[in-house]
Amino acid sequence: MSSSLEKNMLILRSSDGEEFIVPEVVAVMSKAIKNMVEDECASNTIPVPNVDANILAMVIEFCKKHDESEAEAASDLKTFDSEFVNRGQEALYDLITAANFRDVKELLDALCQNVAEMIKGKSVHHIRIQFLGYQLFEILTSNFIWNIWCDRDFD
């Protein structure tokens, strides 16, 4: 591989072939990558299948921030996290998939908590609008079993 690559740097290659040079400490925040590095089955270039360049860049941004800011105030990191996960649902689900497959725990926590926030305290009606748009009727009837829990929300 590239001999000019600095020590302790790794190259991550996205599913669409784009390469990112990333410090090893950042890359190994993905447990999947950490295992590859520890088992020494990784060359300098690590393929990251199923994650395109756009999403991979976001994941790296997140990991870099979390690596750098270990000493920083926890509240700063929290602010960063909440801004980071504030994205459209499409990107959110792509990121969850990536964080899950690559096993990036902190990112997965932040993302899943964010989806939960979209549900928290809302009525069934609002959750449906948020996640479903118009596909309401089939769901109403298919889940009658839970109605006891929810009829107050139709008030």
């Binding site: 997965l108 899943c112 989806v115 926030e117 009525s123 479903l132």
Partner: peptide, 24 residues
């Protein structure tokens, strides 16, 4: 999403909210 991700999302919610989500 895989089941364990959905479970994980629900685990951030109260019992009532988690039930509401399961109606989806």
């Amino acid at each position: 999403m895989p089941d364990d991700i959905l479970s994980f999302i629900l685990s951030f919610l109260s019992i009532r909210d988690s039930v509401k989500a399961r109606i989806l």
